[in-house]
Nucleic acid binder design. Structure first.
Length: 257
DNA sequence: ATGGTGGGTTACCCA
């Protein structure tokens, strides 16, 4: 099974890219973030023609998450129990015996800001919920736009980003608490090198100069870890005309998983 | 130090 995540920064604009990438990469599951679409406007039919079922939780203008899958997703959850967050950032579903939890983590704007406080609170609440999900589903993948670069090797210029948003110690500690539930950053099972990023700012020709951060992650539960076959980042779509500022990240599980 | 780019809406927006 091939599971991928992609922040598309408006599915309205990027639908042709999603169709093109699905045709060439053939993921079994694709988690999308920043669809920026109300549910009534989700392109169900176009994606069905591409061979994908879709579940989604969206809103106008901001946020929005979706899961595309070759087989129908089951047990869909779009809200963290006990946490009434109007922002559409969470979507969980079971596909092929794997619990898939799609997250669009709060960006946080700047360390110390109100949005930063929301980010840390959101991460704590989601982590508590993930503990419960993990207890029910040993085979679990938590993926999405985490808006956190886990370590300095995930940052093109660690000194410039030191304690800045996406890289600060409180954010990294919040991610570490999530990993402590029994999740592993699957990309790092296969590649220890710096220089691999999933997001490049639109400004300053950042992609051409590879000035990026690795903030899009696919976490695998302990029970799935031995079944991870490969993990990668596909930089190609970031170079397409009118690209998202993020590119797809991928986890491949061994056959039967 | 500042601002730059893009998607959205027409905002002291959000990334």
């Amino acid at each position: 099974m091939k599971i991928a995540s992609w922040n598309v920064n408006s599915l309205n604009v990027r639908l042709p890219h999603v169709q093109r990438w699905c045709a060439q990469a053939a993921p079994d599951v694709l988690a999308l973030q920043e669809t920026k679409l109300e549910d009534a406007r989700f392109p169900v039919e176009a994606l069905a023609q591409a061979g994908y079922h879709a579940v989604f939780s969206g809103q106008k203008t901001y946020n929005g998450v979706a899961i595309l899958a070759r087989e129908p997703p089951a047990d869909v959850v779009a809200d963290v129990p006990g946490y009434a967050d109007p922002q559409r950032r969470v979507l969980a579903a079971t596909v092929g015996g794997v619990r898939v939890v799609n997250l669009y983590v709060v960006n946080g704007q700047a360390v110390g800001s109100e949005k930063f406080a929301y980010k840390l609170d959101w991460l704590a609440r989601v982590t508590d919920w993930l503990a419960a999900e993990l207890a029910r589903h040993a085979r679990m993948v938590v993926l999405g736009d985490f808006n956190i670069a886990p370590e300095d090797r995930d940052v093109h210029d660690p000194e410039a980003w030191r304690e800045q948003i996406l890289c600060s110690t409180p954010e990294r500690e919040a991610l570490a608490r999530m990993l402590d539930l029994g999740l592993v950053d699957s990309f790092r099972l296969f590649n220890a090198d710096p220089g691999h990023y999933s997001w490049w700012d639109y400004r300053q020709a950042a992609f051409r100069r590879n000035l990026g951060l690795r903030i899009d992650l696919v976490l695998a539960s302990t029970a799935l870890q031995a079944h991870c076959r490969a993990a990668s980042i596909d930089r190609e779509p970031r170079g397409w005309e009118r690209a998202s500022d993020h590119t797809p990240v991928i986890l491949e599980l061994h056959d039967g998983h």
